[in-house]
């Protein structure tokens, strides 16, 4: 009589075990996901820091500028093709021309705004300085002049057929003139900005080099060298700094294979804090993650 009720619960037991498993799976998932969040957080932070760097963009930006400016030289190639199309038209002299020419005119209209937009988009980026730009501008200017002239050539051919187009062309010409003026102004501004930025950059580079050397020297002075190591082993550390020169972390990048020397250098890095940093806080990004290589003999 007592055991009977036990039998009665048999299905419930299995169901209970299943539920228990489910609960634990959920708990495990919670633990796993909870841990993952922590792993990802530092990555996101490092990305932020990189984006703030004022100097880094120099190199990435210039390739972008090159890429976008390439299409401009390419356009002259496409224009001649368009021009050749109108030429056969006189031979046919039938209805086709009125149909085709509007298309060309439309194409010109649609194409022209694009280069303008590109130039504008580039500007804010270029303001941040690039060495290669002076070389590029001469290329860009002729390109824009060509752009302006070619539509005119097309227009000269156009009057053969319709007067409506003339009106359009006039307005286009006015637009072109405006564009030219704007482009020139922008170029001048850019050149000035670039010159200023270049000078600042040169100064900054000098400053950075100077302080890096100072940091090296300060660390070197604190090393208590282990005696009698053969050869000239080198150890490389990655040092993460805080603003103010405090050392946040020191990670071994490349061991010298002599732990005594590695540890001596690591201790010296901590002893040397606060490390000398340039007074300009803008330059700190260059020092945030420092690679420090120390040789056993100088």
């Amino acid at each position: 009589m007592v055991r009977l009720p036990g039998n009665k619960n048999e299905p419930g037991k299995l169901r209970a075990a299943l539920f228990a498993l489910l609960v634990h799976a959920a708990f495990l998932a919670l633990l796993v996901f909870g841990l993952n969040w922590k792993n990802e957080a530092p990555e996101a932070m490092s990305v932020d820091l990189w984006a703030d760097l004022p100097q880094r963009p120099i190199k990435p930006v210039s390739p972008v500028a090159q890429v976008t400016s390439q299409p401009e030289p390419a356009k002259p190639q496409s224009r001649p093709q368009q021009k050749t199309q109108p030429q056969p038209q006189p031979v046919i002299k039938a209805t086709p021309p009125p149909v085709r020419k509007p298309e060309i005119a439309l194409k010109d209209k649609t194409e022209k705004p694009q280069p303008k937009e590109e130039v504008k988009k580039l500007e804010p980026v270029k303001k941040e300085v690039s060495k290669e730009e002076p070389a590029k501008k001469p290329v860009e200017k002729p390109a824009s002049k060509e752009e302006v002239k070619k539509p005119e050539l097309v227009k000269k051919e156009a009057p053969k057929t319709e007067s409506i187009k003339k009106v359009e062309q006039k307005t286009e010409k006015k637009d072109d003139a405006r564009q030219q003026a704007e482009a020139q102004k922008q170029d001048q501004q850019r050149e000035q900005q670039m010159a200023a930025a270049k000078a600042a950059q040169a100064r900054a580079l000098g400053e950075i080099e100077k302080y890096k050397a100072m940091i090296q020297a300060k660390i070197r002075s604190r090393i208590i060298m282990p005696p009698d190591l053969p050869g000239n082993p080198a150890v490389e550390f990655m040092v993460t700094l805080l603003p103010g020169g405090d050392v946040l972390t020191v990670t071994l990048r490349k061991s010298s294979s002599y732990t005594a020397f590695d540890e001596a250098v690591e201790r010296a890095i901590y002893l040397a804090k606060p490390l000398p940093l340039p007074p300009d806080p803008g330059l700190f990004n260059e020092f945030r993650n420092l690679n420090i290589t120390v040789y056993y003999r100088e």
């Binding site: 619960n9 419930g12 169901r15 209970a16 075990a17 539920f19 228990a20 634990h24």
Partner: peptide, 10 residues
């Protein structure tokens, strides 16, 4: 947890 569910049902 197994007992919890079993007891719950019972």
């Amino acid at each position: 947890w197994w007992f919890i569910f079993r007891k719950l049902f019972t």
